[in-house]
């Protein structure tokens, strides 16, 4: 049964990955990648990690939809409906990706896998939480703040408008002069 589910998910996952490079349309390529990643999420559930598996599906749907928006906006083929290629160095990238896939797949069979010591934990979600937030609590919290600071910093650096554009030279203009008004009226 598990083997059947594995193959039912594995084949579309690989097929979706291949389709990303075969599709002519940016939108189709994005959603081929999404279908592949949803299958990967299913495989992670099959590994006995339901939380990580479902979260992979959840996050990948959101990410791929946002990616579709940006890819269609910024790729060389704005409409995404005419034929295009996802790769520039076609032969080189094919060689690299096949080599990496073969190396990783060979690794699965060549690595001496350790035998399971003890029994699997009853609640793997709790185990994930403990391993992330138990001994590594400080690391994770620092990492969280660093990521947030990076995002805010990148946005501030990328935007042309600052507070003087919004509030005037003396920072006393209310409401702010914004290209698009927000719902709070700041």
């Amino acid at each position: 049964m598990e083997m059947a589910v594995f193959w039912v998910l594995a084949v579309p996952a690989l097929a979706g990955g291949v389709l990303v490079f075969r599709c002519g349309s940016m939108a189709r390529a994005t959603f081929a990648l999404l279908s592949s990643l949803i299958c990967v999420g299913g495989e992670v559930v099959l590994l006995g990690l339901p939380y990580l598996g479902v979260v992979i599906i959840l996050m990948m749907v959101m990410e791929m939809v946002v990616m579709a928006v940006f890819m269609i906006a910024y790729m060389m083929n704005p409409a995404g409906l005419t034929p295009m290629s996802m790769v520039h160095n076609k032969r080189g990238s094919a060689v690299i990706s096949v080599a990496v896939f073969v190396a990783l797949a060979a690794g699965i069979f060549l690595v001496p896998w350790p035998r399971r010591a003890g029994s699997p934990p009853p609640d793997t979600t709790f185990q994930v939480g403990v391993s992330l937030m138990g001994g590594q609590m400080l690391t994770m919290i620092t990492l969280g703040f660093v990521l947030l600071a990076t995002m805010v910093g990148a946005t501030v650096l990328a935007t042309r408008r600052g507070r003087y554009d919004r509030f005037g030279d003396d920072l006393d203009r209310r409401p702010a002069h914004d290209p698009a008004g927000g719902g709070v009226g700041r």
Binding site: A180, G181, G182, G183, V184, R186
Partner: peptide
């Protein structure tokens, strides 16, 4: 665009 500010702020 109005709701996003309410939601995030």
């Amino acid at each position: 665009d109005r709701y996003v500010e309410l939601a995030w702020v």
